[in-house]
Amino acid sequence: MPQEADAIITVTDIHKVYPNGVHALKNVSQTIREGEVVVVVGPSGSGKSTFLRTLNQLETINAGEIVVDGISLTTPGDVNKLREEVGMVFQSFNLFPHLSVLDNICLAPMKVRGISRNDAEDRAVELLAKVGLSDKAGSFPPQLSGGQQQRVAIARALAMQPKIMLFDEPTSALDPEMVGEVLEVMKQLARSGMTMVVVTHEMGFAREVADRVLFMESGELLEDSVPDSFFDNPDSERLQSFLSQVI
């Protein structure tokens, strides 16, 4: 399926049914343009994380079509090629605990992109400076705070120089005082023009940074609008009641 001129992700009528019978995604369609920051909100179990994980095929879909950066995810192909272009940040960081911070960042560029250790380390040092952790290159993940770990995880994903970044509740596992430092890095990334899809409960972040906000519930995409109208004039009743609970 051809993508629109500046569309980088096109999702058409996708369905996801888990083996245990849960219908996690129902008929979801969405187009995301290059450089756009899209925030997905919704109650837990609404399918927003599943939606995000279908975009780099950590979850496969049962029906519909997804095209990311010109690669169709429904025709058999090299899924690793797609994932090189799509970075992901997890709720539980998922840093590699047996590798130093520097090696966490260098591993994939060296093994996947085939660049030399020196070049990889140069880039890693640059990225660590960007996320404000220049002094932690030699530390191991268990020695870092949650906020620091998540910033390393962002640097690790960026080291692959992806075109798209996916964030799966990046601040949900953090102590409240560490949420700010991670959001700050994400804002900086958004300003640099990165295409981002962010699943989060941080409404302030959505309002400030998002180009569009999506609302999902029970596997359906119920609302898709710019932040101002999303928060000030919500269309659906369900979104109104959701917002009244979280804000």
Binding site: G87, M88, N94, F96, H98, L107, K111
Partner: peptide, 29 residues
């Protein structure tokens, strides 16, 4: 943790490479 495999795969590493560089060293310990 399943997240270790997902993190490796999401970086574009193959299943084999993820096992070799990420899962097995931790499992060995």
């Amino acid at each position: 943790n399943k997240g270790q495999m997902e993190a490796g795969r999401s970086l574009g590493m193959s299943r084999g490479d993820t096992l070799r560089y990420i899962i097995l060293p931790q499992a060995f310990k």
